[in-house]
Amino acid sequence: MAAVATDTGLNARHLACMRNDRNLFEQLSFRLGCGQALILEGRNGSGKTSLLRILCGMRQPDDGRLHWDGEDIFRLGPEYHAQIAYVGHRDGVKQDLSAGENLRLARGLGAPNPAFSIEAALDRVELWEHEDVLARNLSAGQQRRLALARLLVTRAKLWILDEPFTSLDSHGIDIVESLFANHLAGGGMLAVTSHHPVSLNDADIIRINLST
């Protein structure tokens, strides 16, 4: 793939991660630049989720460095967090808040994205009629789409997603894949694990298999 010329984006060098003194992975290096997608593959327990949590800065790697635009992400702290959005296994949707309230909160905690209002974001994931519905009354697939709508309301450049297609139907998957394509086309970055094949047409994709 084309090398990223300058030191922009995410640069991982010699990352290692251990769990219960078993090496999940070591000496893992990659660069993720504008418009690129990182797709993580590997068996269950191969460390995909751990790697994503390291990329989020929630977990310290046991070895190696992680730089964003040339700066250590743990030194950047909240400044780095303003650049990322994460949807994990626990999708962070508050059951007792409405869809709109959930998004308003996500927007307030990050750097608001002027391109998407709350309504526009809900519209984009086809939840426009559900703004005032409590999240607990949405179906599993709708809740997932709500969680993914969070990606739109902040100005995050790097989306970090752990199994984003869980409980989505084929139409839901189409919606989310078009979100990804738009994000990459606009110079965004993506780091994703998925059992479901991610079709990103002609996007610049880096594949890493943690099982090998």
């Binding site: 989020c56 296994h89 996500a106 990050g110």
Partner: peptide
């Protein structure tokens, strides 16, 4: 913690 909101606070842009 259980629904993942805490993770979102951890990686929010605010201290």
């Amino acid at each position: 913690f259980e629904d993942g909101s805490l993770e979102q606070f951890l990686i929010s842009a605010q201290p």
